[in-house]
Design a protein around this nucleic acid. Structure first.
Ligand SMILES: [Mn+2]
Ligand SMILES: [Mn+2]
Ligand SMILES: [Zn+2]
Ligand SMILES: [Zn+2]
Lengths: 138, 138
DNA sequence: CTTTTATTGATAATGATTATAATTAGCAAT
DNA sequence: ATTGCTAATTATAATCATTATCAATAAAAG
C-alpha cells in the first residue's frame, strides 16, 4: 500500500478572487482591503472581508500587485499595469495620483550602502509622498 | 483693565518626560512606545502608557528623535546622538543594529523625480532593512 | 457522483493607537 | 507659602485595521 502521497498544493480559482482582481484592475490608485471590499459591495458582489484581505496579501506576495503602507499605517494595494519589475512610486497624498518611477540611482546607492556595512538580504522601500500639480492649485 | 493676554503656550517639564527621554537615550535601537513603557515599569517608574505615546510623538515632531515604521506597522523611536540633520537608516531586522547613513544621492534623486512630475511638498522615507554581518554568521 | 481539501465567510479576538474626562501638578503672580 | 490658570497626566473606554477560528462550501481530481 502506498504511503501518503506528496501533498501537492493545488491552486483553485474562485469567483471571489476574480472579483477582487477585477476591482483592483479597474482603478489605478492605491486602495486598501477595506476600500476594495466596499467597492465590491456596491456592485452587489458579496465577498467576505477576510477573503479580500487574504487575497490581496497573497497577490502582493506573488508580486502580481504592489503593496505600500500609507502614512497612517494602512496597507494599500495597486495594480501596476505597465511595469513588471522593481520600481517605486510618487504618490499625491491629496488625490492619490500615483506615478511609477524607476531609479537606478537609488538602487545603486542602497546596494552600495548595504555592502559597505556588511549587510545582506537587504530590501528597501522608497515611496515619495507629496502634492501633485493639480492639487496644489486648489 | 487688560484684555485677555495673548495665550502663551507654556512648556512644562515633568518627571514623566524626563524618564521617557532618559529611557530612550539609554538604548541605541529603535523602540516602540510600548517597549519604553515596559522598560520604565521594570524600573518602577510609573508613567502612563498614553503619556509615553504622546511624548514620543511630540519629540519626533520636534525632530528631537527619529521615528520609523517597522515592517509590521509599529512606530519605532530612537535617539540618534551623532546626527542632527536629515538622514536615513540601515537596520538589521534580526538584532536591531542601526546604522545612520546620509545620502546626497537619493536626496537629489527624489528631488529630481518629484520636480519632473510637478510634485510639491514632497517627503520621503528611505530606510533599508537587512541582516547585519554578525547576524548572518549564525 | 464522490472524495479530498483549498477556500470562504461570519464572527470573535487582537493589538496598536487615540479619545475621554477627571485628577494632578508646573509655574507665574499674589 | 498660597492661589489661579491650564498644561500634563492617567486610567479607561473606544477605534479600527488586521488576524484567528472553524464550520460550511465548493473547486478539482478520479
Ligand atoms: Mn528600488
Ligand atoms: Mn533623504
Ligand atoms: Zn493630487
Ligand atoms: Zn543583526
Amino acid at each position: 500500500m502506498p504511503l501518503k502521497e506528496d501533498k501537492k498544493i493545488v491552486e483553485r480559482s474562485t469567483r471571489q478572487q476574480s472579483s477582487i482582481l477585477e476591482a483592483l484592475y479597474g482603478v489605478d490608485e492605491f486602495k486598501s482591503a477595506q476600500d476594495i471590499h466596499a467597492l465590491l459591495s456596491k456592485k452587489k458582489l458579496k465577498v467576505g472581508l477576510a477573503t479580500v484581505y487574504r487575497t490581496l496579501q497573497k497577490m502582493a506576495e506573488k508580486e502580481d500587485i504592489d503593496a505600500i503602507k500609507s502614512v497612517d499605517g494602512e496597507t494599500l494595494y495597486r495594480h501596476c499595469g505597465q511595469n513588471d519589475g522593481h520600481h517605486h512610486h510618487l504618490i499625491c497624498s491629496k488625490c492619490g495620483l500615483t506615478i511609477t518611477v524607476e531609479g537606478p540611482a537609488i538602487e545603486n546607492w542602497t546596494e552600495k550602502v548595504a555592502k559597505e556595512n556588511g549587510f545582506r538580504e537587504v530590501s528597501h522601500k522608497v515611496d515619495i509622498f507629496g502634492v501633485c500639480k493639480s492639487c496644489k492649485k486648489k
